[in-house]
Nucleic acid binder design. Sequence first.
DNA 1: GGAGTTTATCATATATGCATGACGAATGAA
DNA 2: TTCATTCGTCATGCATATATGATAAACTCC
Lengths: 151, 151
Amino acid sequence: MLTLPQTAEYALKAVAYIAAAEAEGRPARVPEIAEALDVPRNYLSKTLHQLARAGVLLSTRGPQGGFRLAHAPDRVHLNTIVAPFLPSGGPVCILGRTACSDVRPCAAHHRWKPVRDQMNAFFAKTTVADLLASPGGVGPRSPSATAAALK
Amino acid sequence: MLTLPQTAEYALKAVAYIAAAEAEGRPARVPEIAEALDVPRNYLSKTLHQLARAGVLLSTRGPQGGFRLAHAPDRVHLNTIVAPFLPSGGPVCILGRTACSDVRPCAAHHRWKPVRDQMNAFFAKTTVADLLASPGGVGPRSPSATAAALK
DNA sequence: GGAGTTTATCATATATGCATGACGAATGAA
DNA sequence: TTCATTCGTCATGCATATATGATAAACTCC
């Protein structure tokens, strides 16, 4: 039902790809990532730059440059990756109430809350390392398989 | 993290309000709903019209007219209310893959799937009657409390 | 220091969500 | 039949997400 903004999807896939490249000891360059994941090249460049400013990635220009993770894969949680591309303040109540809480619940509160909590836990606890390690994950395997599991 | 489009929130709140009015044996009019829920009036009119075309509401013009539910509150599920305002096809994979499945999982599949399933169940199983009956629900109680629980 | 590589930024375009205001059409009641 | 009421539709505007292409800036290596 609810979906991430397209840009946040790009961010997740690109970070996973960059982590896989880093596992091979090399930075990932924008044209390579863009082609592998089938994402618009210049737009991806801008998106990755936002992640760099957010402290998720490190960028270096020039030959042998590209993007790397700013922290170890098991320290990078998905919520820090998608946060720059979600409406700030974040949604809490399914009916959009700002004052919705256990003591002042909206009409859907007690049914929506467990769903919302599980979703928050997913983004707060899942790390880039989890994406690399899981079945269907991006590594360790060949570059083509890496792209296939993300594209 | 993920939020409904604003228009879908309007739709949920308005349908709950209309159901509460119907419990009092009267249709709800757009100006009344708009003021009670603090939603733009003309925009709400358009939104409710979409719900009427979707078969969720019935509309009647002229004096004593307004909007009513097309079906009993316990037959109207939340997914039918929000569906007209969500991107069609619907999101399935958190990485946006069209071919993501148990047999061809994306890198996040086995962690995201239970979250997604619980979310789908929420929209598929929760009814308007549930909104009316729950603690913090909109009825039976005074009109002002109805508005407060939705606004 | 020059050439080539790679990210950073700028200007611009398109589509969509959200919203406003004006007007049109149908209905029911006096 | 007239009038008030109420929803239906249209034109328009604004902000933002999603891009595209050109150019600038930084960096490495020779």
